[in-house]
């Protein structure tokens, strides 16, 4: 509601950008040791969507994200963000890696980690300043961790660590976010907090791509869904693409997951 009202008042150029594509992927293939992990991916994601990326283990969900961010080499294909190559859009991109990808015994405080979100804006040579810390503290407040700012990061629970990562993403103040399994292994309170944040980001016109595992919550959380199993099985508004046939194509014979999805569909109808 809020967004559509805002859109009408904007000048035409900004309108075009608002309505345009946040992410476009053409013919993307990534291979490790000549074995393809994702194959011939074509995607066009409109701006301002909450996008769930789902698929079985080994489907290449993280690989897709990392290839979009130039973290791993592409075998072929190209990626553009807001109509330009990634290298020109660095400051508009936020990334939330998997929680297990870092060493939580690293000697930094919660505030230090969140302040890392400002490093991209600061650029080389400039030091972390008061403004960075103020922004970090503010973001910690938004994820309910302001009292933990001075803790060493290993003293947080898994859910709190995940919220720290999200606070860092907020500080990045990007226009498009790539999040690798932010809901993995978190408590219910954290899950609610993350969903609240995602909706909040969407209300501010941000685009979020989220690798997700829990099929039961897909239609609730995301308005756009990418079903991935090495290739893109389907990509579109969740209501159009998240159905039994596509799930069967994506997950194949993995019955437990299928029945879970079927239950979810029954519940929705």
């Amino acid at each position: 509601m809020f967004m559509s009202g805002l859109t009408k008042e904007l000048p035409s150029q900004a309108h075009a950008e608002l309505g345009g594509e946040a992410l476009r992927v053409r013919d993307l293939t990534v291979a490790y040791h000549r074995k393809p992990v994702v194959w011939d991916i074509d995607l066009a994601i409109p701006r301002g969507k909450l996008v769930g990326i789902i698929g079985p283990n080994g489907a290449g969900k993280s690989t897709l994200i990392k290839a979009c961010l130039d973290l791993i080499p592409k075998t072929s294909g190209e990626v553009s963000l807001f109509g330009e190559p990634y290298a020109k859009q660095l400051k508009r991109v936020g990334y939330v890696p998997q929680r297990e990808s870092v060493d939580w015994d690293f000697p930094v405080s919660v505030l230090d980690v969140v302040a890392m979100g400002t490093y991209g804006q600061l650029g080389w040579f400039r030091r972390v300043n008061k403004r960075s810390k103020a922004l970090a503290l503010q973001a910690l407040g938004r994820v309910g961790l302001e009292d933990y700012a001075d803790r060493q990061i290993s003293q947080l629970s898994g859910g709190q660590q995940q919220r720290t990562f999200l606070a860092r993403a907020l500080v990045q103040d990007a226009d498009i976010y790539f999040m690798d399994e932010p809901f993995a292994g978190v408590d219910a309170a954290t899950e609610r907090a993350i969903v609240g944040l995602l909706k909040d980001l969407q209300a501010r016109g941000k685009t979020c791509l989220v690798v997700h595992h829990d099929l039961a919550t897909v239609s609730q959380y995301f308005d756009w869904t990418i079903l991935l199993n090495m290739r893109v099985v389907a990509s579109g508004p969740t209501g159009d693409v998240f159905h039994g046939e596509n799930l069967h194509k994506t997950y194949g014979g993995k019955l437990s997951l299928l029945s879970e999805a079927a239950n979810e569909l029954m519940r929705n109808q």
């Binding site: 990334y95 990808s101 930094v108 890392m116 991209g120 650029g123």
Partner: peptide, 18 residues
């Protein structure tokens, strides 16, 4: 700052241009 972020979270550092 660059050493800290690239030691703690090299992927994030790289996406930020560090």
């Amino acid at each position: 700052k660059e050493l800290r972020i690239s030691s703690f979270d090299p992927e994030l550092a790289t996406t930020m241009g560090i």
